[in-house]
Nucleic acid binder design. Structure first.
Length: 496
RNA sequence: GCCCCCAUCGUCUAGGCCGGCCCAGGACACCGGUCUUUCAAGCCGGUAACGCGGGUUCGAAUCCCGCUGGGGGCACCA
């Protein structure tokens, strides 16, 4: 049997970390068993669904490297892949259910049902549909029809008395007493299908064999199982995963951090790191190891080894992991690091639009100088903004501490003259200029390095001083040293 | 209210099916030290957990029961 999995996003927003995580395991399972991964768009909620969101979600998946074999854009043998385009099959399945007597028309209005529900709540009884429309006569139906009532369609669970067993691939056998289920609505009065119905019909039509989904669906599963049976279909294998929690142990929300995949992309996280991290939130392939390539994950994945508890999204660990990948890319494909830094540069106003080849080259050199300091793309701004600003912005504390005396001013001015006198600078040249000056003045390198660093970068922390001087070049370095000398001469107070 | 799921360091987890190798291992974070012009990275070291209560057993993180805590479901939402 060929494994076929799916992820079914609703295009009502950007791709959420939780959704991407769930999709990832479905994808991983399909790939590890040489099966197919299907993307199905659940857009029956027409008020909130848009094509823009659909496109954005697809783009985020593509960026992550989660590829689909069938979907709304590429089509496939079981299409179409948007629920709004599949209304005919829901209609057909509903008719089939009606014909078999496994479903019936319900003429109760929303208001009437609401009243029923409220009564149950007031009596502290669990609400179950009363079943008033379960066995209407033709006359009664006609009467309701004449009143102008438009019926919904309900699945008949009433006759089902056996225990419903869900064999969850990660949780094992879970039993449900059918007495707690009621005849639930599968088609609205306007003829559109509800989630539990469309989902079953589509999974069957698309020959889905395995579904990995959120635990919130575990309680829905028995309802779906009854429908599969009524239709004479075989349900897929299922595995339910607990949801990702935020640092506050509550459901991941904007309050505790970014929730959209796109936010992480913008901040300069790498898809490789994200995928590796995703895996670890529910599954450790081997003991004592946390770094895996996607290929290794695909080779090792076993659905049974998935964890049952709710993982907390640990941003610190993701950041560490991203740093590991950044350092690897620094060696063999530094362009990937540059790529990850671009959005942050744009957002910080340090880069306008798409970089020219020359700008890209320069950014590449900045990345090289910043080196392993860049754990996330945005670090290029926190550590290296001065490579892109003119004049440099002095951090007040740093200037007060290191650019505060006439002696410093003289020192910086002296270095400025030496820097201005050379045609070009490479790191060794920069080093000998600085160390040479220190020696002549009888100072330690340390004493001169700090003020110079602040003069050139505005900060007390950053990349190696000589590398940074070389990249800045004699002109810019000289200008900054002169400005800083002025600043120091005034005793560290800002220019008026 | 009813039903379902879950429970090892602050966090992610290994181990639990086949009880002794676990006075619980790794990683992130944190704290020291080292390297060093700063920061980061690296290296060395450290703090830190089996939710509670009963069983079963010579022996329980591991098996059983109860409790507590957390999460989810009970829609003409998905």
């Amino acid at each position: 049997m060929t494994v076929r999995t799916r992820y079914a996003p609703s295009p009502t927003g950007f791709l959420h970390i939780g959704g991407a995580w769930m999709a990832f395991f479905n994808w991983l399972f399909a790939r590890s068993s040489h099966g197919a991964f299907v993307l199905r768009v659940e857009d029956t909620d027409r008020a909130r669904s848009t094509l823009e969101y659909e496109r954005a979600i697809l783009e985020d998946f593509r960026w992550l490297g989660i590829t689909w074999d069938e979907g709304p854009d590429v089509g496939g043998p079981h299409g179409p892949y948007r629920q709004t385009e599949r209304m005919h099959s829901y209609r057909a399945a509903a008719d089939e259910l009606l014909a078999r007597g496994a479903a019936y028309h319900c003429f109760c209005t929303a208001g009437e049902l609401d009243a029923e529900r409220r009564r149950a709540e007031a009596a502290k009884r669990p609400y179950r549909y009363s079943g008033r429309c379960r066995s209407l006569t033709a006359d009664q139906r006609a009467a309701f029809q004449r009143e102008g009532r438009r019926p919904t369609i309900r699945l008949r669970l009433h006759d089902h008395h056996e225990t419903i067993v869900v064999d969850d691939l990660v949780r094992g056998r879970v039993e449900f007493d059918p007495e707690h289920l009621d005849d639930y609505i599968i088609v609205r009065s306007d003829g559109s299908p509800l989630y539990n119905f469309a989902n079953v019909v589509d999974d069957h039509a698309m020959a889905i064999t395995h579904v990995i989904r959120g635990i919130e669906h575990l309680s829905n599963t028995p309802k779906q199982w009854v429908m599969y049976r009524a239709l004479g279909w075989t349900p897929p294998e299922v595995a339910h995963l607990a949801n990702i929690l935020g640092a506050d142990k509550k459901k991941l929300s904007k309050r505790t951090g970014d929730t959209a995949v796109r936010d992480y992309r913008r901040e300069g996280f790498l898809p490789e790191a994200l995928l590796n991290f995703f895996a670890l939130m529910a599954w450790y392939p081997e003991e004592n190891r946390e770094l895996y390539t996607v290929q290794e994950l695909v080779e090792r994945f076993r659905i049974k080894d998935l964890g049952k508890a709710s993982p907390v999204f640990d941003l610190d660990k993701l950041t560490w992991m991203n740093g590991v990948y950044m350092r690897q890319f620094l060696d063999h494909s530094p362009d990937r690091v540059v790529e990850a830094c671009l959005p942050s540069l744009g957002e910080a106003g340090l880069l306008d639009g798409t970089p020219t080849p020359a700008q890209r080259e320069y950014i590449g050199r900045v990345v090289e100088v910043l080196g392993e300091r860049i754990k996330v793309g945005r670090d290029i701004v926190t550590y290296g903004d001065f490579f892109f600003t003119e004049p440099v912005v002095l951090e007040p504390d740093a200037a007060r501490r290191y650019l505060n005396s006439p002696e410093i001013a003289a020192l910086l001015a002296a270095l400025r003259d030496r820097v201005a006198a050379v045609p070009s600078l490479d790191p060794p040249a920069a080093e000998s200029l600085v160390r040479g000056l220190a020696e002549e003045k009888g100072m330690s390198a340390r004493e001169i390095v700090h003020p110079v660093r602040v003069a050139l970068t505005g900060k007390t922390v950053g990349p190696g001083l000589f590398e940074l001087m070389a990249l800045l070049g004699p002109d810019r370095a000289a200008r900054r040293l002169a400005a800083a000398a002025d600043h120091a001469r005034r005793g560290g107070s800002p220019a008026s």
